[in-house]
Design a protein around this nucleic acid. Structure first.
Length: 257
DNA sequence: AGAACCGCCTGCTTGC
DNA sequence: TGCAAGCAGGCGGTTC
């Protein structure tokens, strides 16, 4: 599923491909996406990642905000015929941008371009002190807090598991039990893991592909997620799978305390 | 107020 | 073999 590294990957590719170009046509295949109007003949000023959102800034002070949710992908191709499960298509003078989404969870909205930047993104201007002041005292499982977009933007299930595994912290710990030092260690490790994810162009364990349909390479870096019953790559213990809030968590009970 | 739960969706896997 | 049930999960809305 697209998380921060996957969204960043596609944003960088989009910036290369459509910045400064004009949207010639917008075509909606899925009625759920109706309301994507007022973008025809508009020039693309820039592309920006905001958490897991892709913001395509237009010249008229509006932005297209895309959220890929679970199975959404953006594809560039020169052929006007979209792949299976195409939901939306933008036409440019040298090709087409498709939103492909089998599960139909992805959302597209046109709204006023946001000014300023939130301080919840670990790879932008993350405000550690604000985080510790606002969220560190909560009584929610630490893994669920890592995935709470109001606290930290961009982390989903896969990277939350990887970050906690590398940090040696049990996903079941309550947020309030972590010391500031432990939190700072989590931030440092999280930044490293997310940056690696971007360098590897994302994690393609199921159906993630980049703008040109190529799989990423970060799945080879995973040490916890999807490794139920296999030995922990840090201590040799066994990776367990549990449910937290309806989502699978993979962790090592021996070295994650 | 904060934490937990539910519904949205479809393709793939599992089980009889 | 074929069909149905089970499962996957981000997020907004609702409930506890």
């Amino acid at each position: 599923m697209p998380e921060l590294p996957e969204v960043e990957t596609v944003c960088r590719q989009l910036r290369q491909k459509i910045r400064g170009r004009t949207i010639l046509e917008s075509w909606i295949y899925d009625a759920k996406l109706e309301g994507v109007n007022n973008i025809r003949r508009r020039n693309v000023v820039d592309i920006e990642r905001r958490g897991k959102f892709i913001a395509v800034h237009l010249e008229n002070g509006l932005s297209i905000k895309i959220h890929l949710r679970m199975t959404g992908r953006l594809f560039w191709q020169e052929c006007p015929e979209g792949p299976k499960s195409s939901r939306w298509r933008l036409t440019f003078d040298d090709g087409y941008l498709f939103l492909v989404d089998p599960r139909r969870f992805a959302t597209v909205k046109v709204e006023r371009t946001e000014k300023g930047m939130k301080k919840y993104d670990l790879l932008k201007n993350f405000d550690e002190r604000y985080f510790l002041r606002t969220h560190a005292g909560r009584r929610v499982d630490v893994k669920r807090l890592l995935m709470d977009q109001r606290a930290i933007e961009g982390i989903g299930n896969i990277y939350a598991c990887e970050i906690l595994h590398a940090s040696g912290i049990s996903p079941l710990r309550k947020t309030v039990t972590l010391s500031n030092e432990e939190w700072r260690n989590v931030f440092t490790i999280a930044k490293r893991i997310l940056k690696t994810g971007i360098e590897k162009r994302g994690t393609s364990i199921s159906d993630w592909r980049d703008l040109y349909g190529r799989p990423g390479q970060n799945q080879h870096e995973l040490k916890a997620y999807g490794r139920e019953g296999k030995p922990c790559k840090i201590c040799g213990g066994e990776i367990h799978r549990i449910k937290q809030g309806g989502r699978s968590t993979f962790y090592c009970a021996d070295c994650q305390k």
